[in-house]
Amino acid sequence: MPEGKIVKALSGFYYVLTADGVVTQCRGRGVFRKNKITPLVGDMVVFQAENEQEGYIMDVLPRKNELVRPPISNIDQAILVFSAMEPEFSTSLLDRFLVLIESKYVTPLICISKMDLLEEEEKLLEFASYYRKIGYEVVMTSTKEPEQLKEILPFLRDKTSVIAGQSGVGKSSLLNVLRPELDLKTNNISTHLGRGKHTTRHVELMEINQGFVADTPGFSSLEFLELEADEVKECFPEFVEKSEHCKFRGCTHIKEPKCAVKDAVEKGDIATYRYEHYFSFVEEIKDRKPRY
């Protein structure tokens, strides 16, 4: 039986792309419901079809990772789009995204949009410099110079990428620049709510520069439902680097003496806000109600 990649899921149908470039509309077999397996966009699947109009997914091949919100699998890279203004740039929200992405072993690419709306760029440039220093790629763009967005194109080649971020930061606008024929719907920020209106209603993979890119619905909340408190430190790359010099193996970097991470924070080698976010994330996980 043929294999393919699910590139779109909508209203109970899964659209499967084969190596020959043929997309077949498929339904999931009842066995998935029985085994509590839900096919996701990004899944490699085995399917059966007599024609391009109708088929059935027979099996979902093993995934290397999966995200819950958005529901997508086998992701190589997450393009985290954050605006400089409208909505205002938030290191706390960015770090929350980074932790969730790192926990899934997905490579982040930080894109800061709407730089032209800032009256003073200095503080944001400092943030960008720090994230680059700890190993992240950062691209800064302006709505007045859409050509800048094309700097992202080389990062897309041969990868499956997901675009994520708050609503209203310019995710669909980014895709419109990378692939103009998409003509995706965009909306401005809601002045009443102070946040963007959702313009993307489902997850769909689109081919751009020999890779796949998913546009996804905006995020209104992000919870660490699958992370344990002692796993969070592994999602901060600068902590991992310094932890080799901690006195105690398995140091949590909170109460232990002779902690290299806390020492680096005091010396200014690790940003104070990053450590504060780490501490608050750990406390949040410890305080969450157990699931039964």
Rank of each mutant, 00 (worst) to 15 (best):
S190T: 13
I101L: 06
G211A: 12
I152K: 00
F89P: 11
Y14W: 03
R249Y: 05
P2R: 09
K247M: 02
I101F: 00
E204I: 07
L182I: 13
E88I: 12
P290R: 12
M58R: 01
S113P: 09
R274K: 10
A128T: 13
E151Q: 14
E244K: 09
S92R: 12
I285E: 03
F89C: 13
Y14Q: 11
V81W: 01
L118E: 13
G218P: 06
E122I: 05
K36C: 02
Y130D: 14
V22P: 02
F279E: 05
V162I: 13
T38A: 09
F236L: 05
E181C: 09
I134N: 08
D20N: 13
Y136E: 13
E121I: 06
Y105F: 04
R33P: 01
V60A: 11
G30P: 02
E223I: 10
I57G: 02
F97W: 04
F13H: 11
F82C: 09
E88Q: 12
D158V: 01
V169D: 11
Q166K: 12
R69Q: 06
V22E: 12
I37P: 01
K123N: 14
T38K: 11
N176W: 01
F248S: 04
I152F: 00
F82Q: 05
M140V: 15
V7P: 00
T107E: 15
C259T: 05
F239Y: 10
L125C: 12
P154C: 01
G250Q: 06
R249L: 08
T216F: 00
D215G: 10
V162S: 08
S167P: 03
E147M: 00
K197M: 02
L94F: 04
L93M: 15
K114S: 02
A49L: 08
E50K: 11
M44Q: 10
Y15F: 14
L225T: 11
V265P: 00
S220C: 06
K64V: 09
S167G: 06
V41K: 00
G30C: 03
V261L: 03
I37Y: 00
V46K: 11
T186E: 05
F97H: 13
E256I: 04
N51F: 00
P62T: 12
T252Y: 08
N188Y: 08
F219Q: 10
K289E: 15
E122K: 15
K5R: 13
G194F: 03
V138Y: 10
T200Q: 09
A214V: 02
N51S: 10
E147D: 13
E244G: 06
H253P: 04
E266V: 09
A49M: 06
G4R: 02
